[in-house]
Amino acid sequence: MFKNSYKMLFLFSLMLGTLITISSTNWLSAWMGLEINLLSFIPLMNDNKNLMSTESSMKYFLVQAMASSILLFIVIIYMMNSNFYSNFMNKNIYLNLLIISTLMLKMGMAPFHFWFPNIIEGLNWINSLILLTWQKIAPLMLISFMNLNKIIIPMIIISMIMSAIGGLNQTSLRKIMAYSSINHLSWMCASMMLNESIWLNYFLFYSFLSLTLIYYFFINKLYYMNQLYSNYNYSMEMKLILFLNFLSLGGLPPFLGFYPKWMVIELMSMNQIFLISMMVMLTLLTLFFYIRMCYSSFLLNYYEIKWNNYINLNNKHYLYLFMSYISIFGLLLMNIFYFMF
């Protein structure tokens, strides 16, 4: 009971730090919120049943502390307003580039993603979900407050290239989710250049799709791709639903995951046609390793126990099926309701 109570306390502090950051009016209070968020998440990362969690928490602390130090250094320079730094600070492009790079390092976006897949590999699925979703809210919100212009375009392209290449040879489901997160972050940052609210809608859709997949992995204790191929616990229909959720996360129409990408494509096709063309082509590489997983699971020959196809599902799996149906048929239902009302 004591263990659960202190975890709830740290979870509350985690949310409080994020709320302080997104509601702050200056960089110093935003930095304080990021630090509260960091120091609250590290105790949640420790898991006595997972020996790699201690290593991951230490790496996470070192990377985040380095990013926080750089951000605090920039804030102190800005507050000093001395003649020595005045010429540097007047060039807003350098200041914006430093701050954006620091925030990208905090949320694990390429080309500052070197720590992200390795750290998420040592976490359980609950902490992985927090790292993939909630921990990105504060840096994304701070980036959305800034004047991005064309500074972030090279980083978006690099992020999509690294996420597509990095996910090709992965067998760990946690690393695949990490590289998928890097890919979706580039779409969110691209939407920030033209609209301040679409990235938030995109983030909500991405969080729901990630929650659906991670919930299935959590209740079945799946961590690697070979466990998907040899999972005898459920029928072929359950596997079909699982891989359709993967395709939805990749943004393949007509699934729900295509809707946020549809919004960004429609917005950017007016004045960013080259960038959106590059993003669509690079996203096809991300879809490739999702489709490869589906192909390997359904078309390769493997042994399956016949009588396990009739296992009774419990409430946890009914909740997963409900979220899966929204993920798979959500876009069709949205179109139906749109034409009806």
Rank of each mutant, 00 (worst) to 15 (best):
K3H: 10
M8N: 10
F10K: 01
L11W: 09
F12Y: 13
G17A: 00
I20H: 07
T25Q: 12
A30G: 04
L34S: 02
I36M: 08
N37A: 13
S40E: 02
S40M: 00
I42S: 04
P43L: 09
M45V: 07
M52S: 13
E55Q: 06
M58Q: 15
A65Y: 05
I74F: 03
I74D: 09
I77F: 06
Y78E: 15
M79P: 12
F84V: 11
F88W: 10
K91N: 15
I100C: 01
I100K: 07
T102D: 11
L103Y: 02
M104F: 03
M104V: 09
L105Y: 09
M109I: 13
P111Q: 04
N118S: 11
I120E: 05
W125S: 10
I126W: 08
L132T: 06
Q135Y: 08
S144A: 08
M146C: 00
N149D: 09
K175Y: 01
Y179I: 04
N183S: 13
N183I: 02
L194C: 15
E196T: 09
I198P: 00
T212V: 12
T212K: 03
N220K: 07
L222I: 10
N231T: 06
M238E: 11
L242P: 13
F243G: 08
L244S: 11
P260W: 01
M263N: 08
I265M: 00
L267M: 10
S269Q: 04
N271G: 12
I276N: 03
F298A: 01
L299W: 13
N308T: 11
N314Q: 04
Y318E: 00
L321G: 10
F329P: 09
L332R: 05
M334P: 11
F337L: 14
